[in-house]
Nucleic acid binder design. Sequence first.
DNA 1: CAAACACATAAGTCCATGCTTATGTGTTTG
DNA 2: CAAACACATAAGCATGGACTTATGTGTTTG
Lengths: 105, 105
Amino acid sequence: MMENDIFKALADPTRRAIFEKLASTQSMNASALREGISISQPAMSQHLAVLRQAKLVQEERQGRFVHYRVKPDGLALIVQWVARYSTFWPDRIDALRQTLKEMDQ
Amino acid sequence: MMENDIFKALADPTRRAIFEKLASTQSMNASALREGISISQPAMSQHLAVLRQAKLVQEERQGRFVHYRVKPDGLALIVQWVARYSTFWPDRIDALRQTLKEMDQ
DNA sequence: CAAACACATAAGTCCATGCTTATGTGTTTG
DNA sequence: CAAACACATAAGCATGGACTTATGTGTTTG
């Protein structure tokens, strides 16, 4: 199941760090992503493969570089899953509500 | 980090099934939770311990039964984490927006 | 109070996973 | 076109995690 792929992909702290770094920019190639994260080249490549399979990121080859970027709809399933239990976080709902309000502007 | 505990706890499909079942009721003891889920008693106990440590559920002993229930604010960190990337799921946002709207009623 | 019960913990096994080194594939460049 | 480069894949290893059986702890009940 795809939902499971996403949860498993995000369960690793290194992968979340990669995703977060990727989200902070337009797009970035694999080598640039390694900067600041102490990790070997194959390890990065493997992590990106996991994120790719979970459809959280998308790749685009440009010459000998592969540019990665966060996939717009990647977190949708997580959002939907969490939303099912939205009645359980009445306090925190306001923050999300505010986020949505800001998106309208 | 607590965020990591939550992601890891939700990364297992059996644990998500337990959480979902628990969310569908007020509270339930460990034996009742096993019904429908093909799992041994110790396995259930261990899964509940993981969910407990992630603060996704809370326990309450009543006699020789231990009643579990979903902890209201348990998913807050996930919501906050996801909300940081809300600009990346513009299409799916409507579903969540609708959920919030329904909560208002 | 001994047996039954609900649950937790211990200990061991098996498979998944994150890492490493080594090598392969595709692209650019001197 | 050979070397350098960016990245992917292969293979092996070590750890983590989900399961099992066995046993422990606390509570109820006949």
